[in-house]
Design a binder for these strands. Sequence first.
DNA 1: CATATTTAGTGGCATATGCCAGTAAATTCT
DNA 2: AGAATTTACTGGCATATGCCACTAAATATG
Lengths: 155, 155
Amino acid sequence: MTKDDKTSIWAYCNSSAMRRAARQLGQLYDDAMGDTGLKGTQFSLLSQIRFSVEPTLKNLAELMVMDLSALGHTLKPLQRDGWIEIVPDENDRRVKRVRLTDKGFVKQAELTARWQVAQARFDKAFGKEKAAELRRTLALISSPEFARVFRDDAD
Amino acid sequence: MTKDDKTSIWAYCNSSAMRRAARQLGQLYDDAMGDTGLKGTQFSLLSQIRFSVEPTLKNLAELMVMDLSALGHTLKPLQRDGWIEIVPDENDRRVKRVRLTDKGFVKQAELTARWQVAQARFDKAFGKEKAAELRRTLALISSPEFARVFRDDAD
DNA sequence: CATATTTAGTGGCATATGCCAGTAAATTCT
DNA sequence: AGAATTTACTGGCATATGCCACTAAATATG
């Protein structure tokens, strides 16, 4: 164990430990975004939108493991600044789809270049293989299956 | 790899993956807090305060790997509702120290009982040993040493 | 000692994220 | 078909978190 001792929740609580690590990485990756005007969270969003096929807000919220309304709020600034656009679905009038604007594509590429620097630093500091494994672990924890097992504790 | 494929940033970005997992766990642990009126983040705060010796805001911010002003904001509701109190340091008039109120102690204990349920579920779903190792990994990533190595990439 | 610098917090502003209530459109049920 | 229910989203409110500018107090400097 590191210098964290029994007087720290981090040594015990999985959730608190995860949030704290998320804050640290958020900080580090945000720094890497530099003067692009966007943050790591926004880079994630733009990237997920880019690599999805015009996802609906619902789709995107599920992929992000984010509350639908929270997603809506988070997209506002990106929409306002012209990086994305939200268009109604042709078949189902309840549904709205998100996509990058041309400008958004360019911006996503620019951010990706910045991101790679941070990513490389992480790999170097933490270990490339360990990093890949960590991501697999995090993906598992983020999965709906995991949430289901966690909740259906009834045995 | 799980069902996440190359079209998901989660498969690549350590920071995005961490945040996403943090959202999932936040959700799961918050649910466990039930009708206590407080959330997992607030439980973390109360716990860290409880197990620290009247930390200064600065101390606490460092332990939480949180921005000092962010911490200040986050403490507001807890102070307003009487779970904690913030008192000026006797020697250094710039410094303020945080501590639980009597009411706060009781509340922290109540929340701990709820937390244990979530924690047990996590251990069961993820594996007790794996969970302990994950927390060590997260603690490492949260450490100032890690941030330093990450930033001082200059070689 | 007087001034420059550093340190600890505060307040305002902006994004991140979640809950709840409400609305409209689609689906199910009788 | 018409009513009940479900689904997808929106808007308001509250906490979470960070940046920047500003203030007060302590410390270092000449």
